[in-house]
Design a protein around this nucleic acid. Structure first.
Lengths: 339, 339
DNA sequence: CTGAAAGCGCTTACAG
DNA sequence: CTGAAAGCGCTTACAG
């Protein structure tokens, strides 16, 4: 039922070659015929058949996006940004969710590679080898992880973590926990190292805990140990864990930030909505998504090889989950809750 | 570089017709040749070119999914479910985000219609006429909204809302607010009507407020009015609003559920994580997504016309944001905060 | 600047 | 059960 280029050509009195050129390389066509073809196309509601074009050109006009878990606010925001950017570039985006399973991630990527021009893998859990294999099947761009030889966009959290530690130091904290997640996490390495360095620089005693699960439950699981450590502040690997910690603490009548200050990372939608609103290191998810798209499109256009990862800035956002230590404020009447 | 059916055919010593049949209608091929073709295909890593197949068959093997806002946990979960279900059916899913703009929704749907076999529109904001127009471009299935003549899967929240009201009645509440959202919301109509009916049945005085925005901010905006109304309980149109209400109330030292009980709708991930954990009417988002896919696939297969919407059940999940009224418990020493 | 023709890789009546 | 052939709707050297 759809209008074909042949139909348009017939009505406009030109060949299908010309119709095609009008859309793909307009400057190769005389202005007058171009206008005529355009007018007819509009009138007939013509638009090139995608499948036919793909077959003829060898490109699909689609890009694939694979995330570990769409329901995770962190990834949901990246999906939103990628989708928005891709659409503006007149492409389509196929999404898939690996459900946090590295094996599935590889299989999905390999399968999807056949249907798209390129892939964006967000926080991929696969091994470097598997990622290289996927890259053979279709050009990939990594988001939130760097692997030698593959194009990537990352947010070095170092600056943000350092700001977080300095913020705590300024509030008088002298003993702080960091909540690790899996050793396999690239971002955990970055964050842990930056926190350690900053704590040393500021003379803060750092207590490393974990690894815990990178979720709300992981934070809940960590809370009692944090409390027992005697630390007055805790930096979690991400917002969800931070919220888990706060939730558990509050249930035990430990006040946040009165007794213990808590800092997260990501600035997902949750952070601003929680009570207390979460002080957090912002990871610019929207920019990350958009940059990944731009980078992939560059790669597909034959440009920009994978030199060094594109780097975006992270910075601290101070809200309500951090405050001065008891000592700094002078011992309050309700300080009993912590000890 | 990819292996073609011609290559497979040559190696296996058959025609491309046979190769094609092996994959599309295996029973039309002798077992022995079928095995041989399969073996060669596997060895060469052959899989049919999607674009070519689409062109020849007139179907894309993809379905489109349009949601108002991917970053909204409610929609993110639907996306996750749809994507999971579609993949199992060996299709691909294209997603797009209308950014809550009805005009964009229509444009996106119309554009996407050309690239997919069918569309799933989640909580579409477009008019019934626009939806019909979209349905002409490509078969659509509605999720979370019903429109005459269009296939849909909905969750009549009536049962759940009634349970919510009965729960409040059992706890001794006699005055309750309902927080409305836009009059254009199909689900709001359902919920409001059910709450009203149940309140009447239970002899609870109902105070209707709003319309507010269907987000956290909307709940924040409603909180003071709720408090001023003298109601001891509030049912919000959804979880995000409920959380907004609680957040604002807590900041004013109003205890939830001690002073005011709060109930949401949706049971999004947030609900269980908030403090207090939210009592809410569960909307089975995963089933909704899966059912929408199944329904669309049926429609595409030529089956099941749009008789009446597929209906899923909603039920109450009791957590911590609801409790007995002061009077029921006997006036507590700290009841001053509310009055 | 424009057109005729070949080709992209599959599927599917039509014969046999 | 299997193959030759046409066709799906475009794009793009190649001529002119």
């Amino acid at each position: 039922v759809a209008v074909t280029s042949a139909k348009v050509a017939a009505v406009a009195g030109v060949s299908t070659s010309t119709v095609s050129r009008v859309f793909l390389s307009p400057d190769q066509v005389t202005a007058s015929t171009r206008e005529r073809v355009l007018a007819v196309s509009r009138q007939l509601g013509y638009s090139p058949n995608r499948a036919a074009r793909s077959l003829a050109m060898g490109r699909t006009g689609a890009i694939g996006l694979i995330v570990p878990d769409i329901a995770n606010p962190f990834f949901a925001e990246v999906v939103k940004a990628v989708q928005a950017r891709v659409r503006r570039k007149d492409h389509a985006v196929l999404v898939a969710d690996s459900d946090e399973k590295p094996g599935d991630e590889r299989d999905i990527a390999l399968a999807m590679a056949k249907q798209v021009d390129g892939l964006i893998l967000v926080s991929p859990r696969s091994s470097a080898e598997d990622l290289q294999e996927i890259n053979e099947a279709a050009p990939i761009v990594l988001a939130n992880r760097a692997v030698d030889g593959l194009p990537a966009v990352v947010v070095p959290s170092g600056d943000g973590m350092r700001q977080a530690v300095e913020h705590l130091a300024a509030l008088g904290h002298e003993k702080c926990c960091y909540l690790n997640v899996s050793r396999r996490s690239w971002s955990n390495e970055q964050r842990e190292a930056a926190v350690k360095e900053a704590c040393t620089a500021k003379g803060i005693e750092l207590i490393e805990l974990g690894p815990f699960e990178a979720r709300f439950d992981g934070g809940v699981a960590a809370a009692d140990t944090v409390r027992a450590s005697g630390a007055t502040a805790v930096i979690a690997h991400n917002d969800m864990m931070a919220i888990g910690v706060i939730s558990r603490l509050q249930r035990q009548q430990v006040n946040v930030p009165g007794d213990i200050s808590v800092i997260g990372v990501d600035n997902t939608v949750f952070a601003g909505l929680y009570n207390p609103a979460l002080t957090t290191v912002r990871i610019p998810l929207d920019d990350m998504g958009a940059s990944a798209v731009d980078l992939l499109l560059e790669v597909l256009a034959g440009g920009a090889e994978a030199n060094r990862p594109v780097e975006l800035d992270a910075g601290l956002i101070v809200r309500e989950s951090t405050g001065p230590t008891r000592r700094r404020r002078g011992a309050g009447p309700d300080s009993s809750a912590t000890r």
